[in-house]
């Protein structure tokens, strides 16, 4: 089992190296004079906003509208993670396990129903 995770860690290193290599290949080709040279000019380096001159910066405060979705998501995602241990041995835990999980899900879903009734699931 330890060997499995060692294998996984090594593969993660391989994957990182490979993914990093891809843009570096393009860079190497450019340095070798094969690809297109980088020829910056002030107009090319502005951000593209349909041809209109950009006004101000993009990094401003604005209402991104999914704050409450994110809160509900955290609750429900934790719920699903707690269901996984039960799911691997449903047969062994039998009716008692099912009832216990049903109670647990019912408690968490009270919050979900409350959020729905309060209109938090509407995108507005």
């Amino acid at each position: 089992m330890l060997a499995d995770y060692g294998l996984l860690a090594l593969f993660i290193i391989v994957a990182i190296l490979f993914a990093t290599m891809l843009p570096l290949v393009a860079l190497a080709l450019r340095l070798a004079g094969i690809g297109a040279k980088r020829k910056p000019n002030p107009h090319k380096d502005t951000t593209y906003e349909c041809g209109v001159q950009p006004v101000g910066k993009a990094w401003v405060q604005f209402n991104f509208r999914y704050y409450f979705y994110a809160l509900v998501f955290v609750v429900l995602d934790v719920l699903t993670i707690f269901l996984y241990p039960w799911a691997t041995d449903v047969k062994g835990l039998a009716e008692f396990g099912l009832a216990a999980v049903a109670v647990f899900v019912a408690i968490v879903c009270t919050a979900y129903v409350y959020a729905w009734r309060k209109g938090l699931l509407e995108w507005k």
């Binding site: 994957a15 990182i16 993914a19 860079l27 690809g35 297109a36 380096d45 502005t46 951000t47």
Partner: peptide
């Protein structure tokens, strides 16, 4: 692969460079 690499002047250069790598990594 042979196209010019354009980075906007206002961009956060490092994050701009790392983002495609982070996006591609989970796929592998």
């Amino acid at each position: 692969l042979l196209k010019e690499d354009i980075v906007p002047a206002v961009a956060d250069k490092w994050v701009h460079f790392i983002a495609p790598i982070i996006g591609f990594l989970p796929v592998l």
